[in-house]
Design a protein around this nucleic acid. Structure first.
Lengths: 87, 87
DNA sequence: ATAGTATTTAGATATTTGTCTAAATATTTA
DNA sequence: TAAATATTTAGACAAATATCTAAATACTAT
C-alpha cells in the first residue's frame, strides 16, 4: 500500500497511468508524451511497476507497458472504509 | 488533486485518517497514538487540512480534528476511470 | 497576574525524490 | 560484424520532506 501511494504521488506517473488507460505503449512512446528524459521516465515506470500498477513485457527491442487494474480495487476498498463507517 | 495524493503519501497521515474515522479527536489525542513529537503531528495535520481531508475546529484551548469525506468522492471517481474504460 | 496546558510556528538537519547526462545492455538491420 | 535504435543502470545534484528542539501563541485555572 505504501508503494502504491508513493507511485501515485507524482503528476507524471499519474499521467502515465491515464495514457496507458487509453492503450498499451512502449517506453519510447510514453517518453514522447513528456518533456522529460528517457531515463527519468524509465525510473517512473519502475516505480509504477513496483507498485503493481503496470505490467511490462519485452517484445524484441521494445518494452510494452500496460495497466494492471487489480491494485485499483484495493485502493478503492481502502477509501470505501471512510464512506461506509461514517453514519 | 496533487495535495490529496501528497497528503496520502505518508503512513502517519493515513493512520491519522483511520483514527479520525473512528471518532473526532483533539490534536493532543492524536499525538498520543504515535511516537512522534507534537510539532511533527501538527505539521501532518496541516497537510491533511490543505488537502481538504480533515476539518479543524477550535474549542477553548483544544483543537478538534474531524474527517472531511467529500474529497474521498473525487479520489474514488479518479480511480473509477481505470475500472470503467478498460473493456 | 502567574503558572500550567494545548497547539502551532520557526529553524535546523538528515533522508528521500525527481531530474539530468553518460554509460551499459539488448536487439535489429545493413 | 558494425552501426543504429530502444531501454535501463549508474552516479550526481538540487529540491522537497519528515523529523526534531526551542520558542511563540492561546487559553484555563489558581
Amino acid at each position: 500500500m505504501n508503494t502504491v501511494f508513493k507511485a501515485l504521488n507524482d503528476p507524471t506517473r499519474r499521467k502515465i497511468l491515464e495514457l496507458l488507460q487509453e492503450r498499451d505503449m512502449t517506453a519510447g512512446e510514453i517518453v514522447e508524451h513528456f518533456n522529460i528524459s528517457g531515463p527519468s521516465i524509465s525510473h517512473h515506470l519502475d516505480l509504477l511497476k513496483q507498485a503493481n500498477l503496470v505490467f511490462s513485457e519485452k517484445d524484441g527491442q521494445y518494452v510494452y507497458y500496460s495497466l494492471n487494474i487489480t491494485v485499483v480495487d484495493e485502493i478503492v476498498k481502502w477509501f470505501m472504509q471512510f464512506k461506509l463507517k461514517k453514519k
